[in-house]
Design a protein around this nucleic acid. Sequence first.
DNA 1: TCACCGATGGACT
DNA 2: GTCCATCGGTGAC
Length: 211
Amino acid sequence: MGPTSLAQKLPEAFYTRPDVVTIARELLGKHLCTRFDGVLTRGLVVETEAYSGTRDAACHAHLGRRTKRTEIMYHQGGVAYVYLIYGIYSLFNVVTNAEGTADAVLIRAIEPLEGIEEMRLRRNLAKIEPRLTAGPGLLTQALGISTQHTGASLTGSEIWFEDRGLEVPEQDILEGPRVGVAYAGADALLPWRFRLKGSRWVSKANPKYQV
DNA sequence: TCACCGATGGACT
DNA sequence: GTCCATCGGTGAC
């Protein structure tokens, strides 16, 4: 097996599994890639959060809510859910589980690995620093993802994940409560935020939530 | 380093 | 009119 064959695009079967928390953990160490207008960008996923459909008070689909915005969450796993937050930022989520369920994984931070100069230009930064991709509203800018990509297939040619053979040991995964969901009552305490231990590319906002 | 606050628009009441 | 799964600039220390 040669080096180039080590990059395997995650198949639809990865996303259609029922346990969104497991998928959120397993996305750590995978590579998130985009190719728009021939420009390839790629980064290592270092921070995720799980949102568990209609039973999760922090999830946009809580209690079965269906709107034009959230409808895509009920799609079969393997598509993107991208929404606008605070009128400015696009947040990128991976829809998981079967048709009719509304689970999703928010990608909160990546370590830039390929197309870094393009990311820097898109972010309008003078140098390479964590502000490039360390935050859910930042990495979408760097990768060129916006709300127009909601519904996009993750097994197509514009946005996808790759497994490049990195094994993440259990002890290298930090767990903690999700960010910015205090309104969710008891569900705000669920330890459904996952980070790669030791990474300088995890999000810096909300230091009081740091585990 | 840290706290505060404005930006900005769509979803929802 | 109010609320956001956020970020960056500002100013105090």
